[in-house]
């Protein structure tokens, strides 16, 4: 059961922000409700006002340019099936296909996912490897923050009470990038999510890894890029990758900040980080070569 609230349905971002400014902490932005309504049913949140942002023009759009702009109220399902997303950021579409279940994907939105800042968010983890920025609008104007600045910690963002998340912008990888997102777990939300992207520069045996990007979610207070792991493989010849993947996996395991919880002990999670970084790397390297590994890992989804 939900407690009574007033539902506002502004049609412009200006009206929505004005409502948020007036109502302050009494209002919560609302789109798909797949996270918000759950917390309200539990009584953990009790906003007397919901501001529905789904009618705001442009919030449901996906636009191409140097970067790909995804409006805040685009659903996971739209992301999964958008020809533009599939062409420009194919891994985003295939990760969206594996978010939660089809009912959540039909209703839940990209902006809601990011603004909720669940440390287990698949999209937030993947987006870190796409240099994502978020656009926030308020009565004071617009500002753009990197996703790393926006997500501050578990369920905590840099959004001010009168601000709305309008869109997220992704920088598609250069042609030839191979990438993989691997998520592991047996619960409703993943225990671990790892994104790896890289290019192979040069031909044949002399090809070297360039522009490696590694992001890890679920096992720290917020999803994070792991530069220490990226540094271990950048510039390494493909033929010698086997010599450094152990060090790369160790660097990743040392960088994360896991807690003991239902998903497992912190020690177990560090071990799984090392295991799955190696696996995600193998898939990404194969894809950079234009090949697909037929690997399947127990309790894991490879997107």
């Amino acid at each position: 059961m939900l407690r009574p609230f007033t539902l506002h349905r502004p049609e412009t971002a200006e009206d929505a922000c004005a409502l948020l400014a007036t109502l302050g902490e009494d209002a919560a932005p609302y789109a798909g409700g797949t996270e918000l309504l759950l917390l309200m049913k539990l009584g953990l949140l009790r906003p007397p006002h919901l501001v529905d942002v789904k009618r705001i023009a442009g919030f449901g759009d996906i636009a191409d340019g140097t970067r790909l702009t995804i409006g805040a109220t685009v659903t996971h399902r739209t992301l999964e099936r958008s020809p533009l997303v599939r062409a420009r950021c194919p891994l985003v579409a295939s990760v969206a296909r594996h978010v939660a279940n089809v009912r959540v994907r039909n209703v839940g939105t990209v902006g809601g996912n990011l603004a909720f800042a669940d440390p287990h968010s698949d999209l937030a983890t993947l987006f870190l490897t796409l240099d994502a920025t978020v656009e926030l609008v308020s009565p004071r104007g617009r500002r753009e923050l990197s996703l790393a600045e926006f997500v501050r910690g578990p369920w905590e963002t840099a959004r001010r009470p009168d601000e709305l998340l309008a869109s997220v912008r992704l920088s598609p990888w250069p042609t030839g990038t191979g990438a993989a997102y691997v998520k592991f777990g047996v619960h409703e939300r993943p225990t671990l999510g790892i994104a790896v992207a890289l290019r192979l520069d040069g031909a044949g045996e002399r090809a070297r890894v360039a522009d490696a990007r590694v992001a890890i979610g679920c096992v720290s207070p917020r999803p994070m890029r792991v530069e220490a792991a990226e540094a271990r493989v950048n510039g390494v010849a493909e033929a010698e990758l086997g010599d450094v993947t152990g060090a790369m996996a160790d660097a990743a395991a040392e960088s994360v900040d896991p807690a003991d919880d239902l998903h497992g002990s912190a020690e177990y999670k560090r071990e799984m980080v090392a295991v799955f970084v190696r696996r995600a790397l193998r898939v990404a390297v194969a894809r950079a070569r234009g090949a697909e590994l037929s690997a399947s890992f127990p309790h894991a989804v490879v997107a």
């Binding site: 409700g33 797949t34 309504l37 759950l38 049913k41 399902r77 279940n101 089809v102 009912r103 039909n106």
Partner: peptide, 26 residues
């Protein structure tokens, strides 16, 4: 489950599956 995990409340809205337990009637 009342949390969109189990699917027992599934109905189709304009052909799309939704969890009626976590979906405002309006």
């Amino acid at each position: 489950c009342d949390t969109q995990v189990c699917g027992a409340c599934t109905v189709l809205v304009d052909g799309q599956a939704v969890s009626a337990c976590t979906y405002l009637a309006v």
